[in-house]
């Protein structure tokens, strides 16, 4: 997701002055205030933030609150299809959206490593501001710390988010029932592969962009239309397989999916073949699985497609608990379990 900004031209901290983050930028003195006032506050313009108080004081919205937090540590910080800034905003918004909440406010905590290029910080901060604006959320409070060189990985961002859950909305694995249908919002595996492709040491030129995107408009459209959404799960770390396993385990049911129905791009499939990865376990940042009653499937698909998720489709259904939480009918017609991954997928030898 490109922000379309000319970063270098508009960085409010003159590069010549401090080309890199120094320990003093986290020291609480003039330089830190300079960083906050000139850079952060030039793009994060929530009224609460501009009062420069110790915290944000907010009016409670109607309904109940959803509250989540997510820390973002990614290498490389700029990747095809996004960067750590947009990721830190959409990651938290998407967690709220999966609770059926309308995202409202975010906090942003930066941990910067001494020596981190100021220009890169500006790109990240600008990207966060753009993402927040696209998702109509406000970054209302924040914090910046600097750690010694060698004690961080350039930049870490933690965001926490608060959203409002409309009355009557109850979404979670406890509502999953046998007979429900599982829908996926689009093709899987692009984020993980886009990161692998540009990671140091990988000479694979795979034309894959991350699927990084906000999901709140999709969940809102489903709920606004009055669909009885039983559960939603964004398919981030651990991919589709982990998301389905978590939902199945928490609902004491078995989710059965059909391999041929799962949308995966050719490039992603090819990269997975080379690396020995299973695309079911590869991370996404803009995809979710949706569980709802059979009689609402067509409406749900129509809504998702109308909102731009052209590849949204049905991939399986929920059955009473069977031999394993997740079972998949393979391309050649037999069934196998789809297990939770024990650790990270490791590229194989041959």
């Amino acid at each position: 997701m490109s922000t379309g900004k000319d970063f270098t031209a508009s960085c409010p901290i003159p590069i010549a002055e401090y080309p890199e983050v120094t320990m003093a930028h986290g020291g609480g003195g003039t330089l830190m205030h300079d960083l906050i006032n000139r850079m952060m506050l030039s793009v994060f313009t929530a009224p609460g933030l501009l009062t420069r108080h110790d915290g944000a004081v907010l009016d409670p919205p109607e309904g109940r609150l959803a509250f989540t937090t997510d820390s973002h540590v990614i290498t490389p910080i700029f990747f095809p299809g996004g960067d750590i800034g947009a990721l830190s905003v959409y990651g938290t918004i998407n967690d709220l959206a999966m609770c059926g909440a309308k995202p409202l406010w975010l906090s942003a905590g930066f941990i910067l490593e001494e020596g981190f290029p100021m220009e890169d910080l500006w790109r990240v901060v600008s990207s966060m501001a753009d993402a927040a604006s696209i998702a109509s959320v406000s970054i209302v409070t924040g914090d910046t710390k600097v750690v010694d060189r060698g004690k961080g990985d350039g930049i870490y961002i933690n965001t926490a988010g608060i959203g409002a859950v409309p009355d009557g909305v109850d979404i979670g694995p406890h509502r999953i029932l046998p007979g429900d249908v599982v829908i996926i919002s689009g093709d899987i595996g692009r984020h993980g592969i886009s990161i692998m492709a540009v990671r140091e040491g990988m000479d694979l030129h795979i034309p894959v962009e991350s699927d990084l995107a906000p999901l709140h408009h999709l969940s809102a459209a489903l709920l606004d239309e009055g669909l009885d959404v039983h559960c939603m799960r964004d398919l981030t770390r651990g991919g589709l397989a982990s998301g389905l396993n978590e939902m199945a385990a928490a609902s004491d049911s078995t989710i059965c999916i059909v391999e041929d129905l799962i949308p995966i791009r050719e490039e992603v499939l090819g990269a997975c073949e080379i690396l020995g990865f299973d695309p079911l376990y590869v991370a996404n940042e803009g995809r979710f699985a949706l569980v709802l009653p059979e009689d609402q499937v067509e409406r749900a698909l129509a809504i998702l497609r109308e909102q731009g998720s052209a590849q949204a489709c049905r991939i399986g259904s929920v059955r009473p608990l069977n031999s394993a939480p997740v079972i998949m009918r393979s391309a050649i017609g037999s069934e196998r379990i789809v297990d939770m991954l024990s650790g990270e997928q490791l590229p194989r030898i041959c």
Partner: peptide
Amino acid sequence: VSTEGACAAYFRYRRTT
């Protein structure tokens, strides 16, 4: 451990709960 190991394959695709 290995992605090619027979035990890992059984654990991953065949283990029942």
